[in-house]
């Protein structure tokens, strides 16, 4: 587009939105028929317009656990607001209660993966396995874990603070099997582990995370 064509840009825009005046339209159409640059620009923009209108993936499904995660963070928010009144402004920073799980480590879903998993070790004599679970939640005073392996004990097993701020951990000794679980924050709020490899609705309106502990490497 040559410099003198700049004024046609505005006309083109109004042309495309159907807001152009008749005189201007005649002017533009005449120009487009004469100026190959402008006509190409016009064709390109119509092409872009068409591609945008027919774009197939306009809406993208969020992960199924996102809603739970959002609602849990709002629950955390309420607590923090209360803390805000009683304590300090820093509570606000803590509101960024973004759940991050480091891992339910390793080979859990893959019995055929390479030998000697990094964390989970088998104790042949008792038939139980050790699983390390991490949970990131800086805005908690206490975190425990409960689930099928504790018979859903309302108190759960307390998790320990790691060296890293906001990161909690626990070593579980469990028999091979499939276990639903939740974390308990401050002894009150049950939340799923959003980064666990498997999630399933708990039927009560919330979500459970699933811990898979396969039997030893029986093929």
């Amino acid at each position: 587009m040559r410099r003198k064509c700049t004024r046609y840009e505005g006309l083109m825009e109004r042309y495309l939105t159907g807001e152009i005046l008749p005189d201007e339209r005649d002017d533009l159409e005449k120009h487009l028929s004469l100026c190959p640059d402008c006509s190409r620009v016009y064709r390109d923009i119509s092409g872009v317009e068409c591609a945008l209108r027919t774009f197939p993936g306009k809406m993208v499904d969020p992960p199924p656990y996102l809603k739970t995660r959002i609602l849990a963070s709002i629950e955390g928010e309420r607590k923090s607001l209360w803390a805000f009144l009683t304590r300090t402004v820093t509570a606000f920073a803590a509101i960024l209660a973004i759940f991050l799980i480091m891992a339910v480590y390793g080979y859990l879903t893959r019995p055929s993966s390479p030998p000697s998993p990094p964390v989970a070790g088998e104790k042949a004599e008792t038939g139980t396995k050790e699983v390390k679970i991490f949970f990131y939640f800086p805005d908690a005073r206490t975190v425990s874990i409960t689930g099928d392996f504790t018979n859903w004990d309302p108190k759960g097993l307390p998790m320990k603070k790691t060296g890293k701020k906001g990161l909690w951990e626990i070593d579980l000794k469990v028999k091979p099997g499939v276990y639903s679980y939740n974390f308990i924050i401050d002894g009150r709020l049950l939340v799923p582990d959003p980064q666990a490899p498997e999630q399933t609705p708990d039927g009560f309106g919330g979500m459970n995370s699933i811990l898979l502990v396969p039997k030893g490497d029986v093929s």
């Binding site: 969020p62 992960p63 995660r69 959002i70």
Partner: peptide, 24 residues
């Protein structure tokens, strides 16, 4: 949830980031 997530996802073309920001 879906429209907001989609907006952020296309804004950055980054799924994980869209999760965090949608929550925020």
């Amino acid at each position: 949830e879906r429209p907001i997530f989609s907006f952020i996802y296309h804004f950055f073309n980054d799924y994980a980031l869209a999760e965090d920001l949608t929550q925020e």
